[in-house]
């Protein structure tokens, strides 16, 4: 991961190219104490429709960045802008509304075992207060897209690990979010399922969503064709994609 690398400043990370980024980190550190190796914290911007993969060793801060982005953690230092708003200035209601524009796939977010595949996928449209008649066709379409169209009424317990991961993707994207955050979405998956999950995320990016995925699998990231952001020694390093991979 040393070739084609450079330390990122907000400008270098895409601010110039995309004057209205979906999300922007400015010298952000998850904690008040400096854990970024003496650097000034993480700075980067995510352009609309971009596909980024965040790599780094376990504990390097990948998950923290994702959690900061969806506002389930607050930064110890620095400034985060999301959808053009400073997250610190958002009220709880505004933060909840902003979260509904973000699809999340975190390993600690469970599927609801008592609900069907359809009801699991329809969770976010439902809590957004949308009419069931309105969102049901969209959810069914998303479930068909992830390959679960024939299992709408099944319970998650009856799904394979790969299918559960696809259901988590469906739940994350069913409400048409502008940003998708996926933390280790391919962990514990076989090669076929891994490619499938990666292809789905790439398709979402190509359809206009901003995708940020975290993984420790640098080989997978290198072949994905996505923009790679590597966390090393408390610094965020930009790695150019080695191959076009899956991203169109």
């Amino acid at each position: 991961m040393t070739n084609n690398t450079a330390a990122l400043s907000p400008e270098e990370a895409g601010l110039r190219a995309h004057p209205a980024p979906i999300a922007r980190f400015e010298s952000v550190s998850p904690n008040k104490t400096d854990e970024t190796g003496g650097s000034r914290g993480f700075s980067f911007a995510l352009a609309p429709g971009s596909f980024h993969i965040l790599t780094g060793a376990p504990g390097s801060g990948k998950t923290s960045i994702l959690r900061l982005l969806c506002m389930v953690e607050r930064p110890g230092r620095g400034r985060i802008q999301l959808f053009g708003r400073d997250v610190e200035s958002m009220s709880r209601t505004e933060a909840a509304a902003a979260r509904r524009r973000i699809g999340v796939m975190f390993p600690d977010l469970p599927l609801l075992e008592h609900l069907s595949v359809f009801e699991n996928a329809a969770l976010v449209p439902r809590i957004s207060g949308r009419n069931r008649r309105e969102y049901a066709p969209e959810v069914v379409e998303v479930l068909r897209w992830v390959g679960l169209g024939r299992k709408l009424d099944e319970k998650p317990a009856g799904l394979s690990t790969g299918e559960k991961r696809c259901l988590a993707i469906a739940r994350a994207v069913a409400n048409g979010p502008e940003v998708i955050l996926a933390d280790e979405p391919t962990a514990d998956l076989d090669a076929v399922s891994t490619r499938r999950v990666l292809r789905l995320l790439a398709e979402l990016a190509s359809s206009g969503a901003t995708v940020l995925m975290a993984t420790t699998d640098e080989g997978l990231a290198a072949t994905s064709g996505a923009q790679i952001m590597h966390l090393q020694d408390g610094r965020l390093v930009l790695v150019e994609p080695a191959s076009p991979g899956l991203v169109p």
Partner: peptide, 16 residues
């Protein structure tokens, strides 16, 4: 608590 966390992250308001 897991369900509450899921709902919170998914954008459910405190009122919901």
């Amino acid at each position: 608590k897991d369900l509450v966390r899921l709902l919170h992250v998914s954008g459910a308001s405190d009122g919901y």
